[in-house]
Amino acid sequence: MRQLPAFLLVVAIAYVLALALSEAPAFGRVDAPARNEVMRFYLDEECEQSGIPNTVTAIIFDYRGYDTMGEATVLFTAVGAAAAVLAGHSGTLVARPMAASDDVILRMVSRMVIPFVQIFGIYVIVYGHVSPGGGFAGGTILGGSMALYLFVFGPKRTVKKLPLAWGEIADGAAAFWYVLVGLGGILLGANFLANAAAGVPLGVRGQLFSGGTIWLIGLGVGVKVAATIINLLVHLAGET
């Protein structure tokens, strides 16, 4: 009996959104209102102020470093909340507990693919400031490779390879590392999470070790995201 009210509500919201859409600027115009002086500031000043080619990474890890620290905390809180809710959950009451796959092709292919996926993830983390990528994208790829291992070989073997305590230590240590890098800015006499303003050498633009604290923060965030993904999945798979 919830079909009709739901349909009416969706139609009402669709009408309001369509009204707003009819006033919206056309898609993909170079002179769209969103392309204002804020965007121009980032595009013009970023190379001088952060010293890295990738503007998106500079915004995430330098200009909006506080915001990203909040995001890292959100991930940390999600893992903690899931672990607290699932404490004592053994997976035995669920109808079909998660087991290893019997498929030979799946096992062999994933055994061959996982190292390359992990190397690509590490590459995306480490080169996130000179090419497309960054800590979040690379950490997701790295966590995805571990998730593949979990789904193919089962939670028991995953925990044997990567004990849950290690994953949680990596998670917490990466969050703490972010705060430490931020406090380094205060120690150098500038604001929390200050980069070039604190006198951190920016290095040669486009090289691996450049951009000051951005590289360090990206490394920590990559480890953190990968640890978050595998911790959440191991908890959900019932291996506490």
């Binding site: 898609f27 115009r29 392309r35 595009l43 013009d44 001088e48 998106v56």
Partner: peptide, 18 residues
């Protein structure tokens, strides 16, 4: 989609800034 514009490059500056 709001951020995209036709005929523009991805915001990764290879050499010498914008």
């Amino acid at each position: 989609s709001i951020g995209y514009a036709h005929g523009t490059l991805s915001p990764i500056m290879r050499r010498g800034g914008p």
